Amino acid sequence: MSETPAPRSAPLRARAEIDLAALRANVRALRALAPGAALMAVVKSDAYGHGAVPCARAAVEAGATWLGTATPEEALELRREGLRDVRVMCWLWTPGGPWREAVEADLDVSVSGMWALDEVVAAAREAGVPARVQLKADTGLGRNGCQPGDDWAELVAHALRAEEAGLLRVTGLWSHFACADEPGHPSIAAQLTLFREMVAYAEEAGVRPEVRHIANSPATLTLPETHFDLVRTGVAVYGISPSPELGSPADFGLRPVMTLSASVALVKRVPGGHGVSYGHHYVTPGETTLGLVPVGYADGVPRHASGTGPVLVAGKWRTVAGRIAMDQFVVDLGGDEPETGSEAILFGPGDRGEPTAEDWAQAAGTIAYEIVTRIGSRIPRVYVNEGQPG
């Protein structure tokens, strides 16, 4: 991921401005919503496109005591970048993964089945260091996680034997909700009940976890009974609501962290009946002006938002005209003639009337998580308020 300290006036083709003061304030707001639990800031997928290392540091400054990643490679990068005085957990493993490196880096690794337990035990034996292991229960999401019943009993028993042998420490018991972003969904109560049962079984067998956790961002925001010892906050850290049905970011005291903008590359007057972009899916209804925005689907702007994506140019809300191409798209300026180089804001907090990531999600038929996460490496991340309190 490219990073630059360039000031706001820098003549960049495009930029994703990352407000670290907003991120720190979001972490503090989330901690206040779950005062009895520790907070994990999830920084997987390069911190949802915001930049893992700067965002991780800012989150820790604001009181996050855990960091979460999907892959071990993401977690190991945090350690290499000096994030050592914070717990780091990674949960997406495949056979032959870097178990020994993870053990030696003092990562918390998630185990969902016997193959993974066997591999981490072997790695701990080779390293001569006990592994930090969190057992994941599948309480109804149907993805990763150990099934209840005999499978869970076997996994718990073998983990305890390895713990007695000094090869690992069971540091956590955890699971993940399927529908916490859908208020009142019956699976929420069912999963919570099953999680309590599976935790009780493990603890009765002798497991003494440091943390028990199931709450993701939506559960952290709206389901205090799910907070247990730790909440795992992902998209909410970046000031995005996990679901419009739950409320807007402002409803939870959150502020979007990323502002995506570009410099208008060309403004020109065209006659009516002028086709725009591939396939001429947009034809000008009359004489008008067109503005060229030099970002496209290679930068992560969703092609599905062709004809619908909103952009703020010269103080007015415009809409993508025609297809979004690999490197650029066009907006119909309706006769306005902003200067070449004027700012086109695709999304941000909304303070200046600009669209938000949720607006783009609606335009593309997806979720705001995807909008920010897909912004590619050609777009430099410019960090502001790095050394200021949030």
Rank of each mutant, 00 (worst) to 15 (best):
T4N: 11
A21P: 06
L30M: 13
A32V: 05
G36E: 11
A47D: 12
G49Q: 06
H50A: 07
C55L: 11
A56Q: 06
T65K: 02
A70H: 08
T71C: 01
E77R: 15
W93D: 04
W99T: 09
D108T: 14
V109Y: 00
M114A: 06
A124R: 03
R132N: 14
Q134K: 08
G149K: 12
D151W: 03
D151V: 11
L155M: 08
A157I: 02
E163G: 03
W174A: 15
F177G: 10
C179S: 11
E182H: 11
I188R: 02
A189K: 01
T193S: 10
E197P: 07
R212N: 12
N216T: 12
N216L: 03
A219C: 08
T226S: 09
H227I: 05
A236S: 15
V237P: 00
I240S: 00
G253N: 08
G253E: 09
R255W: 02
R255E: 07
V264T: 04
V264R: 00
K268W: 03
R269K: 11
H281L: 07
E287C: 00
V293Y: 01
A298E: 14
A305E: 05
S306T: 13
G309P: 07
V311S: 01
V311K: 01
A314S: 06
D327I: 02
D332E: 15
E354S: 13
E354D: 13
A363V: 13
G365L: 03
Y369V: 14
I375S: 02
R381C: 02
Y383H: 08
E386W: 04
E386C: 04
